[in-house]
Amino acid sequence: MNAEAESRGYTRLLFEQEGPVLRVLLNLPEARNALDLEVRPELIEVFRQLNDDDGVKVVILAGVGGHFCGGSDIRSMQEIKGPVAARKRMKLGQRLIQNMVNLEKPIIAQVDGAAAGAGVSLALAADLVIASDRARFFFSFVKVGLAPDWGQYYFLPLRVGMARAKELMFSGGPLAAEEAARIGLVNRVVPAENLAQEAWAWAASLAQGPSQAYALAKAALNCWPMSLPNFLEMEASMQAVALNSQDFQEGRDAFLEKRKPRFKGE
């Protein structure tokens, strides 16, 4: 990967793109990439626009400066006046989580150093998580007297189970990368010096796959939990679409011709 980082007009984000892979980088290293009130709308807008960007097939979310994301900016919380203002602040952050979940493209969270509070929620909202061997996950809401937010009540039990989720939320962590992998919170752990390269290689491999099939699978899995009859009905409808896609025709022909398929996402 030889792409150079660029700001693209944003003040708190950097971007690296090569072909169909885009890396979005939180760029607040002096604050461990904490989610201040300026970076939140930037992330919301980026993930909204990515749905219409046919040039991007896989997104990596990472942070600069050796850390993924230090969570919410505690200093800005001093300015919250009353429950109405607090709810508006929460709803803004939730729009980011919704935009990530609704993006019909795989998102890989590239986690190095600290992921804390809402930073853990960001990683959980991604489809896949690759972490360095020095990554640490802090469920730090409890440390400041807050309840988890940004979808953590939903995502964490789905990944690690209810009993483990309660333990992590009550204790606050930290959770080391290897243990995070063992309990299912992350997919892969790699040496820190190889993290960026391994994340990019994974994304590049996915980008060669059938992007419409990814979109259908992600949409279905986002409905979990749901009853078996409802899932069967959904998969029938989705498979009807997939069976008529150009990617399936290419995949079928490649299988029969004993060659590697060349998917186009159509």
Rank of each mutant, 00 (worst) to 15 (best):
Y10I: 05
E16S: 12
G19I: 03
G19T: 06
L22F: 02
L22P: 00
R23A: 13
V24L: 11
P29C: 09
E30I: 07
D36R: 06
V39I: 14
E42I: 05
L50S: 02
D53M: 12
G55K: 06
V56Q: 05
A62M: 08
F68R: 02
C69M: 08
A86V: 07
A86H: 10
R87Y: 11
I97W: 00
N102A: 13
L103C: 01
A109D: 02
D112Q: 14
I130V: 14
I130N: 00
S132M: 12
F139M: 00
F141S: 01
Y153T: 02
Y154Q: 07
F170Q: 11
P174A: 11
A176D: 13
A177Y: 06
R182W: 05
I183F: 07
N187K: 07
V190D: 08
A199I: 03
Q208S: 10
Q208M: 09
P210M: 05
A213Q: 09
Y214T: 04
A215I: 05
C223F: 05
W224I: 12
W224D: 12
S227V: 09
L228I: 13
L232R: 15
L232E: 14
E233C: 08
E233Y: 11
V241K: 11
A242H: 09
D253L: 15
E257A: 15
K258G: 02
R259F: 13
P261L: 06
F263K: 10
G265E: 02
